Simulated scan of single mutants.
Amino acid sequence: MGIRKKSTKSPPVMSHEFIIQNHADIVSCVAMVFLLGLMFEVTSKFAVLFITVQYNVTISTNGPEETPINHFHHGIKDLATVFFYMLVAIIMHAIIQEYVLDKINRKKHFSKTKHSKFNESGQLSAFYLFSFGWGASILLSENFLSNPSSLWESYPHMLMPLQVKFYYICQMGYWLHALPELYFQKTKKEDIPRQLVYVFLYLVHIASAYILNLNRLGLVLMVLHYFVELLFHVSRLIYFSNENRQLGFSVWAVLFVVGRLLTLSLTVLTVGFGLANASNQGFDLLTGNFNILFVRMTVLAGVCLTQAFMMWKFINFQLRRWREHASLQTLKKKQAPSKNKGKKERANGVNGVNSHAADSPRSRKVKSN
Protein backbone atom coordinates (compact mmCIF):
# COMPACT_ATOMS: atom_id res chain seq x y z
CA MET A 1 0.00 0.00 0.00
CA GLY A 2 1.28 3.46 -0.85
CA ILE A 3 1.56 6.44 1.47
CA ARG A 4 -0.98 9.17 0.98
CA LYS A 5 0.66 12.56 1.21
CA LYS A 6 -1.38 15.41 2.56
CA SER A 7 -0.89 18.74 0.88
CA THR A 8 -1.98 22.13 2.13
CA LYS A 9 -3.24 23.03 -1.33
CA SER A 10 -6.57 21.48 -2.19
CA PRO A 11 -6.49 19.61 -5.55
CA PRO A 12 -8.88 20.48 -8.40
CA VAL A 13 -12.32 18.88 -8.17
CA MET A 14 -12.60 15.45 -9.87
CA SER A 15 -8.84 15.30 -10.42
CA HIS A 16 -6.97 12.09 -9.59
CA GLU A 17 -5.62 13.54 -6.36
CA PHE A 18 -9.07 14.79 -5.35
CA ILE A 19 -10.64 11.34 -5.89
CA ILE A 20 -7.86 9.60 -3.96
CA GLN A 21 -8.09 11.99 -0.99
CA ASN A 22 -11.90 11.90 -0.85
CA HIS A 23 -12.69 8.42 -2.17
CA ALA A 24 -14.22 7.27 1.14
CA ASP A 25 -16.67 10.20 1.16
CA ILE A 26 -17.55 9.66 -2.51
CA VAL A 27 -18.20 5.95 -1.99
CA SER A 28 -20.24 6.70 1.15
CA CYS A 29 -22.49 9.00 -0.90
CA VAL A 30 -23.00 6.27 -3.52
CA ALA A 31 -23.91 3.74 -0.81
CA MET A 32 -26.28 6.27 0.77
CA VAL A 33 -28.15 6.57 -2.52
CA PHE A 34 -29.04 2.87 -2.35
CA LEU A 35 -30.11 3.18 1.30
CA LEU A 36 -32.30 6.21 0.54
CA GLY A 37 -33.86 4.23 -2.29
CA LEU A 38 -35.48 1.95 0.31
CA MET A 39 -37.57 4.87 1.57
CA PHE A 40 -39.56 5.32 -1.63
CA GLU A 41 -41.89 2.76 -3.15
CA VAL A 42 -40.79 3.53 -6.70
CA THR A 43 -37.11 2.82 -6.03
CA SER A 44 -37.37 0.30 -3.18
CA LYS A 45 -37.62 -2.72 -5.50
CA PHE A 46 -34.43 -1.63 -7.22
CA ALA A 47 -32.57 -0.77 -4.00
CA VAL A 48 -33.46 -4.10 -2.37
CA LEU A 49 -31.46 -5.93 -5.05
CA PHE A 50 -28.28 -4.27 -3.80
CA ILE A 51 -28.80 -4.34 -0.04
CA THR A 52 -30.64 -7.55 0.87
CA VAL A 53 -29.79 -11.18 0.09
CA GLN A 54 -31.76 -12.48 -2.89
CA TYR A 55 -33.33 -15.82 -3.95
CA ASN A 56 -35.18 -16.70 -0.77
CA VAL A 57 -36.78 -20.17 -0.53
CA THR A 58 -39.08 -21.01 2.41
CA ILE A 59 -39.08 -24.62 3.59
CA SER A 60 -41.67 -25.91 6.08
CA THR A 61 -40.49 -28.40 8.69
CA ASN A 62 -42.55 -31.53 9.33
CA GLY A 63 -43.87 -31.60 12.87
CA PRO A 64 -46.76 -30.62 15.12
CA GLU A 65 -45.73 -26.98 14.79
CA GLU A 66 -44.54 -26.29 11.31
CA THR A 67 -41.79 -23.67 11.48
CA PRO A 68 -40.80 -22.18 8.13
CA ILE A 69 -37.05 -22.05 7.52
CA ASN A 70 -35.56 -19.63 5.02
CA HIS A 71 -32.82 -20.86 2.70
CA PHE A 72 -31.19 -19.17 -0.27
CA HIS A 73 -29.64 -20.16 -3.57
CA HIS A 74 -27.38 -18.19 -5.90
CA GLY A 75 -28.23 -16.31 -9.08
CA ILE A 76 -27.30 -13.40 -11.35
CA LYS A 77 -28.86 -10.84 -8.96
CA ASP A 78 -26.12 -11.59 -6.45
CA LEU A 79 -23.77 -9.43 -8.53
CA ALA A 80 -25.71 -6.34 -7.41
CA THR A 81 -25.45 -7.38 -3.75
CA VAL A 82 -21.73 -8.07 -4.09
CA PHE A 83 -21.27 -4.60 -5.62
CA PHE A 84 -22.99 -2.90 -2.68
CA TYR A 85 -20.91 -4.73 -0.08
CA MET A 86 -17.81 -3.93 -2.08
CA LEU A 87 -18.67 -0.27 -1.40
CA VAL A 88 -19.08 -1.08 2.29
CA ALA A 89 -15.64 -2.74 2.29
CA ILE A 90 -14.06 0.39 0.78
CA ILE A 91 -15.64 2.53 3.52
CA MET A 92 -14.49 0.19 6.29
CA HIS A 93 -10.99 0.11 4.77
CA ALA A 94 -10.81 3.91 4.92
CA ILE A 95 -12.10 4.00 8.53
CA ILE A 96 -9.49 1.49 9.76
CA GLN A 97 -6.75 3.32 7.84
CA GLU A 98 -7.58 6.79 9.10
CA TYR A 99 -8.60 6.15 12.71
CA VAL A 100 -6.26 3.26 13.60
CA LEU A 101 -3.32 2.67 11.28
CA ASP A 102 -2.46 6.29 10.43
CA LYS A 103 -2.38 7.21 14.12
CA ILE A 104 0.00 4.35 14.90
CA ASN A 105 2.18 5.27 11.91
CA ARG A 106 2.54 8.83 13.13
CA LYS A 107 3.74 7.60 16.53
CA LYS A 108 6.14 4.94 15.26
CA HIS A 109 7.71 6.93 12.38
CA PHE A 110 8.16 3.89 10.14
CA SER A 111 10.24 3.97 6.97
CA LYS A 112 8.40 3.91 3.63
CA THR A 113 8.84 0.14 3.25
CA LYS A 114 7.69 -0.62 6.78
CA HIS A 115 4.87 1.90 6.44
CA SER A 116 3.49 0.07 3.41
CA LYS A 117 3.81 -3.39 4.97
CA PHE A 118 2.32 -2.20 8.26
CA ASN A 119 -0.74 -0.83 6.48
CA GLU A 120 -1.17 -4.05 4.51
CA SER A 121 -0.86 -6.29 7.58
CA GLY A 122 -3.10 -4.01 9.63
CA GLN A 123 -5.91 -4.12 7.09
CA LEU A 124 -5.62 -7.87 6.49
CA SER A 125 -5.37 -8.66 10.21
CA ALA A 126 -8.70 -6.93 10.83
CA PHE A 127 -10.34 -8.73 7.89
CA TYR A 128 -8.91 -12.18 8.71
CA LEU A 129 -9.89 -11.86 12.37
CA PHE A 130 -13.46 -10.90 11.48
CA SER A 131 -13.78 -13.57 8.75
CA PHE A 132 -12.25 -16.33 10.87
CA GLY A 133 -14.51 -15.59 13.85
CA TRP A 134 -17.64 -15.34 11.71
CA GLY A 135 -16.81 -18.45 9.66
CA ALA A 136 -15.97 -20.52 12.76
CA SER A 137 -19.31 -19.59 14.36
CA ILE A 138 -21.14 -20.75 11.21
CA LEU A 139 -19.26 -24.05 11.19
CA LEU A 140 -20.21 -24.67 14.81
CA SER A 141 -23.86 -23.68 14.39
CA GLU A 142 -24.30 -25.80 11.23
CA ASN A 143 -22.37 -28.80 12.71
CA PHE A 144 -20.07 -29.09 9.68
CA LEU A 145 -17.06 -29.92 11.88
CA SER A 146 -18.80 -32.59 13.97
CA ASN A 147 -20.02 -34.36 10.82
CA PRO A 148 -17.31 -34.18 8.10
CA SER A 149 -19.35 -36.38 5.73
CA SER A 150 -21.83 -33.48 5.42
CA LEU A 151 -19.25 -31.83 3.13
CA TRP A 152 -20.25 -34.20 0.31
CA GLU A 153 -23.44 -35.91 1.43
CA SER A 154 -26.70 -34.74 -0.16
CA TYR A 155 -24.78 -32.81 -2.84
CA PRO A 156 -25.61 -30.42 -4.54
CA HIS A 157 -25.84 -28.02 -1.61
CA MET A 158 -27.80 -25.50 -3.64
CA LEU A 159 -29.85 -24.18 -0.69
CA MET A 160 -27.81 -22.28 1.87
CA PRO A 161 -28.68 -20.79 5.27
CA LEU A 162 -28.73 -17.00 5.38
CA GLN A 163 -25.42 -16.79 7.26
CA VAL A 164 -23.58 -18.97 4.72
CA LYS A 165 -24.81 -17.02 1.70
CA PHE A 166 -24.18 -13.63 3.31
CA TYR A 167 -20.69 -14.80 4.29
CA TYR A 168 -19.88 -15.59 0.65
CA ILE A 169 -21.36 -12.28 -0.52
CA CYS A 170 -19.17 -10.34 1.92
CA GLN A 171 -16.07 -12.35 0.99
CA MET A 172 -16.47 -11.64 -2.72
CA GLY A 173 -17.26 -8.00 -1.99
CA TYR A 174 -14.11 -7.61 0.10
CA TRP A 175 -11.73 -9.12 -2.45
CA LEU A 176 -13.32 -7.11 -5.25
CA HIS A 177 -12.74 -3.94 -3.24
CA ALA A 178 -9.01 -4.69 -3.29
CA LEU A 179 -8.92 -3.82 -7.01
CA PRO A 180 -9.95 -0.13 -6.74
CA GLU A 181 -7.82 0.10 -3.57
CA LEU A 182 -4.75 -0.36 -5.76
CA TYR A 183 -5.59 3.03 -7.24
CA PHE A 184 -6.82 4.69 -4.04
CA GLN A 185 -3.72 3.68 -2.06
CA LYS A 186 -1.28 4.64 -4.86
CA THR A 187 0.22 1.17 -5.01
CA LYS A 188 3.65 1.03 -6.63
CA LYS A 189 3.76 -0.34 -10.15
CA GLU A 190 6.15 -3.14 -9.19
CA ASP A 191 3.74 -4.30 -6.44
CA ILE A 192 0.61 -4.34 -8.63
CA PRO A 193 1.25 -7.73 -10.36
CA ARG A 194 1.71 -9.45 -6.99
CA GLN A 195 -1.47 -7.91 -5.63
CA LEU A 196 -3.46 -8.84 -8.75
CA VAL A 197 -2.38 -12.49 -8.54
CA TYR A 198 -3.25 -12.47 -4.84
CA VAL A 199 -6.76 -11.07 -5.39
CA PHE A 200 -7.41 -13.20 -8.49
CA LEU A 201 -6.70 -16.46 -6.62
CA TYR A 202 -9.08 -15.51 -3.82
CA LEU A 203 -11.89 -14.50 -6.16
CA VAL A 204 -11.58 -17.59 -8.37
CA HIS A 205 -11.61 -20.04 -5.48
CA ILE A 206 -14.41 -18.36 -3.52
CA ALA A 207 -16.62 -17.79 -6.59
CA SER A 208 -16.01 -21.36 -7.81
CA ALA A 209 -17.08 -22.88 -4.49
CA TYR A 210 -20.15 -20.62 -4.51
CA ILE A 211 -21.24 -21.34 -8.10
CA LEU A 212 -20.46 -25.07 -8.06
CA ASN A 213 -22.46 -25.51 -4.83
CA LEU A 214 -19.37 -26.59 -2.89
CA ASN A 215 -20.09 -23.90 -0.32
CA ARG A 216 -19.61 -26.20 2.70
CA LEU A 217 -16.15 -27.30 1.61
CA GLY A 218 -15.26 -23.74 0.64
CA LEU A 219 -16.34 -22.42 4.04
CA VAL A 220 -14.16 -24.93 5.92
CA LEU A 221 -11.13 -24.20 3.73
CA MET A 222 -11.58 -20.43 4.09
CA VAL A 223 -11.72 -20.62 7.89
CA LEU A 224 -8.59 -22.80 7.93
CA HIS A 225 -6.70 -20.53 5.54
CA TYR A 226 -7.76 -17.32 7.28
CA PHE A 227 -6.53 -18.59 10.65
CA VAL A 228 -3.03 -19.25 9.27
CA GLU A 229 -2.92 -15.89 7.45
CA LEU A 230 -4.16 -14.08 10.56
CA LEU A 231 -1.23 -15.49 12.54
CA PHE A 232 1.26 -14.32 9.90
CA HIS A 233 0.03 -10.73 9.72
CA VAL A 234 -0.32 -10.41 13.51
CA SER A 235 3.26 -11.71 13.84
CA ARG A 236 4.40 -9.10 11.33
CA LEU A 237 2.68 -6.32 13.28
CA ILE A 238 4.39 -7.51 16.47
CA TYR A 239 7.71 -7.66 14.62
CA PHE A 240 7.34 -4.02 13.54
CA SER A 241 6.84 -2.97 17.17
CA ASN A 242 9.82 -5.04 18.38
CA GLU A 243 12.17 -6.72 15.90
CA ASN A 244 13.35 -9.22 18.52
CA ARG A 245 9.92 -10.86 18.71
CA GLN A 246 10.00 -13.41 15.90
CA LEU A 247 8.44 -16.44 17.60
CA GLY A 248 5.18 -15.89 15.74
CA PHE A 249 6.88 -16.46 12.38
CA SER A 250 8.19 -19.84 13.54
CA VAL A 251 4.71 -20.93 14.67
CA TRP A 252 3.24 -19.63 11.43
CA ALA A 253 5.77 -21.58 9.35
CA VAL A 254 4.68 -24.85 10.96
CA LEU A 255 0.96 -24.08 10.70
CA PHE A 256 1.36 -22.96 7.09
CA VAL A 257 2.62 -26.40 6.05
CA VAL A 258 -0.06 -28.12 8.15
CA GLY A 259 -2.72 -25.88 6.57
CA ARG A 260 -1.63 -26.82 3.06
CA LEU A 261 -1.75 -30.54 3.92
CA LEU A 262 -5.20 -30.23 5.52
CA THR A 263 -6.51 -28.27 2.53
CA LEU A 264 -5.33 -30.94 0.10
CA SER A 265 -6.64 -33.76 2.32
CA LEU A 266 -10.11 -32.25 2.72
CA THR A 267 -10.40 -31.45 -0.99
CA VAL A 268 -9.32 -34.94 -2.09
CA LEU A 269 -11.59 -36.54 0.52
CA THR A 270 -14.63 -34.47 -0.51
CA VAL A 271 -14.19 -34.18 -4.29
CA GLY A 272 -11.98 -37.16 -5.10
CA PHE A 273 -13.73 -39.75 -2.93
CA GLY A 274 -17.02 -38.41 -1.55
CA LEU A 275 -18.49 -36.94 -4.75
CA ALA A 276 -16.84 -39.55 -6.98
CA ASN A 277 -18.70 -42.34 -5.12
CA ALA A 278 -22.01 -40.47 -4.90
CA SER A 279 -25.03 -41.90 -6.69
CA ASN A 280 -26.14 -38.62 -8.29
CA GLN A 281 -23.51 -38.43 -11.03
CA GLY A 282 -24.43 -35.97 -13.78
CA PHE A 283 -24.63 -32.38 -14.95
CA ASP A 284 -27.83 -30.41 -14.38
CA LEU A 285 -27.94 -26.61 -14.20
CA LEU A 286 -31.51 -26.53 -12.85
CA THR A 287 -30.66 -28.57 -9.77
CA GLY A 288 -27.13 -27.20 -9.51
CA ASN A 289 -25.51 -30.60 -9.94
CA PHE A 290 -21.95 -30.38 -11.32
CA ASN A 291 -20.85 -33.84 -10.19
CA ILE A 292 -19.08 -34.98 -13.35
CA LEU A 293 -15.50 -36.16 -13.87
CA PHE A 294 -14.35 -33.03 -15.74
CA VAL A 295 -15.54 -30.66 -13.00
CA ARG A 296 -14.10 -32.81 -10.22
CA MET A 297 -10.72 -33.04 -11.94
CA THR A 298 -10.72 -29.29 -12.62
CA VAL A 299 -11.45 -28.53 -8.96
CA LEU A 300 -8.75 -30.93 -7.76
CA ALA A 301 -6.20 -29.58 -10.24
CA GLY A 302 -6.99 -25.97 -9.31
CA VAL A 303 -6.62 -26.59 -5.56
CA CYS A 304 -3.46 -28.68 -5.98
CA LEU A 305 -1.79 -26.13 -8.25
CA THR A 306 -2.66 -23.29 -5.87
CA GLN A 307 -1.28 -25.15 -2.86
CA ALA A 308 1.89 -26.03 -4.82
CA PHE A 309 2.29 -22.37 -5.82
CA MET A 310 1.88 -21.25 -2.21
CA MET A 311 4.42 -23.83 -1.00
CA TRP A 312 6.88 -22.73 -3.67
CA LYS A 313 6.54 -19.10 -2.55
CA PHE A 314 6.84 -20.19 1.07
CA ILE A 315 10.04 -22.20 0.46
CA ASN A 316 11.62 -19.29 -1.46
CA PHE A 317 10.67 -16.95 1.40
CA GLN A 318 12.25 -19.23 4.00
CA LEU A 319 15.41 -19.76 1.93
CA ARG A 320 15.81 -16.01 1.52
CA ARG A 321 15.44 -15.52 5.27
CA TRP A 322 18.02 -18.24 6.00
CA ARG A 323 20.49 -16.70 3.53
CA GLU A 324 20.06 -13.27 5.12
CA HIS A 325 20.49 -14.78 8.59
CA ALA A 326 23.60 -16.71 7.50
CA SER A 327 25.17 -13.64 5.89
CA LEU A 328 24.41 -11.61 9.03
CA GLN A 329 26.06 -14.23 11.24
CA THR A 330 29.11 -14.32 8.94
CA LEU A 331 29.39 -10.54 9.09
CA LYS A 332 29.23 -10.61 12.89
CA LYS A 333 31.99 -13.23 13.03
CA LYS A 334 34.22 -11.08 10.78
CA GLN A 335 33.59 -8.02 12.90
CA ALA A 336 34.32 -9.82 16.20
CA PRO A 337 38.11 -10.41 15.57
CA SER A 338 38.58 -6.82 14.38
CA LYS A 339 36.98 -5.56 17.59
CA ASN A 340 39.20 -7.78 19.75
CA LYS A 341 42.25 -6.65 17.79
CA GLY A 342 41.30 -3.03 18.34
CA LYS A 343 41.03 -3.59 22.09
CA LYS A 344 44.49 -5.18 22.20
CA GLU A 345 46.01 -2.31 20.20
CA ARG A 346 44.45 0.22 22.53
CA ALA A 347 45.85 -1.73 25.47
CA ASN A 348 49.34 -1.65 23.87
CA GLY A 349 49.40 2.09 23.46
CA VAL A 350 47.76 2.65 20.15
CA ASN A 351 46.01 5.97 19.48
CA GLY A 352 48.06 7.80 22.10
CA VAL A 353 47.09 5.58 25.03
CA ASN A 354 50.03 3.89 26.87
CA SER A 355 49.62 1.31 29.55
CA HIS A 356 53.30 0.43 30.07
CA ALA A 357 54.35 0.96 33.63
CA ALA A 358 57.67 2.40 32.52
CA ASP A 359 56.01 5.15 30.51
CA SER A 360 53.51 6.21 33.12
CA PRO A 361 54.43 8.71 35.84
CA ARG A 362 55.12 6.98 39.14
CA SER A 363 53.80 8.29 42.34
CA ARG A 364 56.52 9.17 44.80
CA LYS A 365 56.59 7.32 48.06
CA VAL A 366 56.38 9.53 51.12
CA LYS A 367 59.07 8.68 53.62
CA SER A 368 57.81 8.29 57.06
CA ASN A 369 59.71 10.17 59.67
Rank of each mutant, 00 (worst) to 15 (best):
I292W: 00
R216P: 00
S44A: 13
V33T: 03
I26S: 14
L300C: 07
G302A: 14
Q318M: 11
M297A: 08
R321G: 03
K165M: 04
M160I: 01
E153K: 07
R216K: 13
L38V: 12
F232K: 06
I96L: 10
A89C: 15
S146Q: 14
M222K: 03
Q307G: 13
A209S: 06
F144V: 10
V303N: 01
N369R: 10
K108Q: 15
T43E: 03
F294I: 05
S116M: 04
W134M: 11
P11H: 12
G274I: 08
L145Y: 04
V257M: 05
Y210D: 00
F34I: 00
S279L: 12
H74I: 11
V353P: 05
F256C: 04
A326H: 11
S141D: 11
A207W: 04
K334C: 01
L203T: 01
S44P: 02
Y183C: 10
F83C: 09
P156M: 00
W175V: 04
R362L: 15
S360P: 10
Q185D: 08
K339P: 01
Y198G: 08
K343P: 06
G259R: 01
H157M: 03
N147L: 06
L231N: 03
S265W: 15
T267A: 04
L182I: 15
A47C: 14
Q97T: 09
C304I: 13
Y167Q: 02
F294Q: 12
K77T: 10
I238H: 08
S149Y: 01
N242C: 07
L275H: 02
G218T: 01
K112M: 08
D102N: 13
N143C: 07
G352E: 06
S7H: 03
Y99S: 07
K5F: 14
F84W: 05
Q195N: 12
L328Y: 13
Q329W: 12
K6Q: 13
S10Y: 07
A308D: 04
F40E: 13
K9N: 04
K313I: 00
V42H: 03
M32D: 09
T43I: 09
L275F: 05
Y202K: 06
N143Y: 02
F256V: 01
N244L: 09
S279V: 09
Y155D: 00
N348C: 08
F290Y: 12
L261H: 13
E243K: 11
F118N: 01
Q97F: 06
Y239K: 14
E345C: 13
F232E: 02
K188E: 07
L145W: 01
G133N: 06
R321D: 06
